[in-house]
Amino acid sequence: MSADSFIECRGVWKSFHRNAVLRGVDLDVERGTTLVILGQSGCGKSVLLKHFVGLLRPDRGSVAVDGEDIGALDRKNLFRIRMRFGMVFQGAALFDSMTVGENVCLALREHTGKSEEEILEIGIRKLRLVGLDGVLDKKPAELSGGMKKRVGIARAIAMDPACVLYDEPTTGLDPIMADTINDLIKKLNDELDITSVVVTHDIQSAYKVADQIAMLHDGAIIFKGTPKEVRKSDNEFIRRFTRGYAAGSVAAG
């Protein structure tokens, strides 16, 4: 265990209808770094991510944030922990009954005593940070997929969180927009100096944004290292995954 871990997972097990998705995951997320969790579709990456913030509770094992076991917390204290996080959901998960501005400013209105002018100013600033201008009064239904993702990021960083979790941030986007989102994740990490966890199966995205890459396979972390170490790995599954082979020997492929 690293002394500077922001999130620590120890022996996390999770099953759905007798299907064990996570089988004893041990993982540390170091403070101030970007960790990318790689894995095949449906391998439990998003399930693991939701354990970091108590959206899902492990059947066995523990998750600690900043040394505090979140499994032991009541709702009020869990909310206190979640205030330190921002989360970008796979489908953006914008509140479709609200405007973009209301989405981004909701947490500020709920949790801060700031004036309406201050809140709007912060909202506009966060939207500019993700490259959006003049969309404050639009409804999510009027936005493209890439714009929705960016509004989702602006909402996630509205409260200046210590850690941002990204669930498949580039899935469903064209390559140019996917790269724009990758640049944005890097920019936010550099400018805001936050801890980030990115869940993806997009290997190019992983190489671009990661300080560390963890590979989730068969319900466990089978590898953790830098992007360079991933490239050099001689693990059969990792080589297949990074090079996109369905089965068999990489050399033969």
Binding site: A93, L94, R155
Partner: peptide, 17 residues
């Protein structure tokens, strides 16, 4: 619809009950 599109999870993540 809010549940299946993760909007309720998003609300939880904003520390709103």
């Amino acid at each position: 619809t809010m549940r299946v599109t993760e909007q309720i999870d998003a609300m939880e993540m904003l520390a709103i009950d």
